[in-house]
Write a protein that binds this DNA or RNA. Structure first.
Ligand SMILES: [Mn+2]
Ligand SMILES: [Mn+2]
Ligand SMILES: [Mn+2]
Ligand SMILES: [Mn+2]
Lengths: 219, 219
DNA sequence: ATTAATTTTTAGACTTACCTAAAAACCATT
DNA sequence: AATGGTTTTTAGGTAAGTCTAAAAATTAAT
């Protein structure tokens, strides 16, 4: 059994929204992530459910099946390996890879992905710090904490960022924030959730709640 | 204006069948190359004609327009660059690349293809000896002659092969024939068009007309 | 010049993946 | 328990890309 591009995109979205398959996912959440209409999501949900890759009861949201999880992880593995390729080998900036990887993740060839993995030296994380599942679908999840949850005076290392928004990534570039950067929380502004942070013990910058919620630190 | 995967496949087929746009192409020829029904070809021809990438009069076959030629060459460029990547970087055998390249050729990203070209060192030929069009669509056509046209006692270097059939390429591997191999025609059997040839001044082997018509030599 | 064979096109249908508009179910209040 | 708002589903429709069967045009053969 094999999935079309569209089916793969939906399944991946469902997997990511379900936090590794632990939570149930709503139609609207999927519709927003994929920029399609809820009606289209309902259609696709029925299809994926018939194929057995998700579990579904009308009006009760969907969860991902064991088989679906495996297939979603295969797509995610491909997406992230291609991102590594683009950055490491083709000198793409981290904000330029998402859209291309969104296409490349659908290329069908087990040999290709095995060889690509080997060629890249079996990377464990993509350019945004996201873990790359291995062939068996096993993920090396890093213990990390959202910057917005970090207390004042505590410091850590940026270990992952939200990769889907190029504008966000360009903004981080401008701020001098990258995977591996040291960040110390200098001041938390309760009023709007923004923070003043010290980056690499050099620049002191103010960043919004929005940004804090898309940066993960390892402490 | 942009073309779908299917449209790109048709346009490429038409370009290749038209020998660089010089000849007119029949519906049946396209249908056979793409393994679709003639009725489907008629449908697609109308679409491509409306888009201005081919020239078409009912029942009179199609020819490719200047714009169509440019777009076909872009797809061919991508196909062949990816083939080089797969062989040179990912250690694919030359008989394993065609199907994957058939998918990769449709990835849309001008930056990707420019960087890939650079990463590969601006190759001029693909693993089957086919020329790779440059960004402007200009092809370095090698002067070559079909082995079946070569006279007895004449020798040459294998410079290109038909890439679309993995079985054919595996057969060449077994025979010790590769791009760059020296071939001398020892004997031509008029009766069935087969030949006895000497490869790299070592093995003497007999090959069929079929094979001779898919091997090009530079003399 | 007819007739026969072949090629090409049209007609009508199916699947996938999307959409809008409307109905149905769910949920959160009062 | 009834109401109103939100979420989700259904109904019906479109476009792309394919198909089979049948009609039309072209080409080849008598
Ligand atoms: Mn995708
Ligand atoms: Mn990423
Ligand atoms: Mn293709
Ligand atoms: Mn080739």
């Amino acid at each position: 059994m094999s999935l079309s591009f569209a089916e793969e995109n939906y399944l991946k979205a469902i997997y990511l929204l379900s936090k590794n398959g632990t939570e149930t996912v709503s139609t609207n959440a999927i519709s927003e992530m994929l920029q399609t209409r809820p009606a289209s999501v309902s259609d696709m949900i029925r299809k994926l459910s018939n194929k057995g890759v998700i579990l579904y009861q009308k009006y009760q949201g969907v969860s991902i099946s064991e088989e679906g999880k495996i297939m979603a992880l295969r797509v995610i593995r491909k997406h992230r390996l291609w991102e590594v390729f683009l950055v490491e080998k083709l000198k793409f900036n981290w904000d330029e890879v998402h859209e291309v990887a969104e296409q490349l993740e659908h290329i069908r060839s087990p040999l290709l992905i095995r060889r690509l993995d080997e060629f890249l030296g079996f990377p464990k994380y993509d350019p945004h710090g996201e873990p790359i599942p291995d062939e068996a679908g096993i993920i090396q999840e890093k213990k990390s904490i959202m910057l917005s949850e970090v207390a004042e005076m505590i410091q850590g290392i940026v270990c992952a960022v939200n990769d889907s928004n190029p504008l966000f990534l360009k903004y981080l570039d401008r701020m001098g924030i990258y995977i591996g950067a040291g960040v110390r929380v200098v001041e938390k502004i309760d009023f709007d959730g923004s923070m003043v942070v010290l980056i690499d013990n050099k620049q002191k910058v103010s960043i919004s709640r929005e940004v804090c919620e898309n940066l993960w630190l390892s402490i």
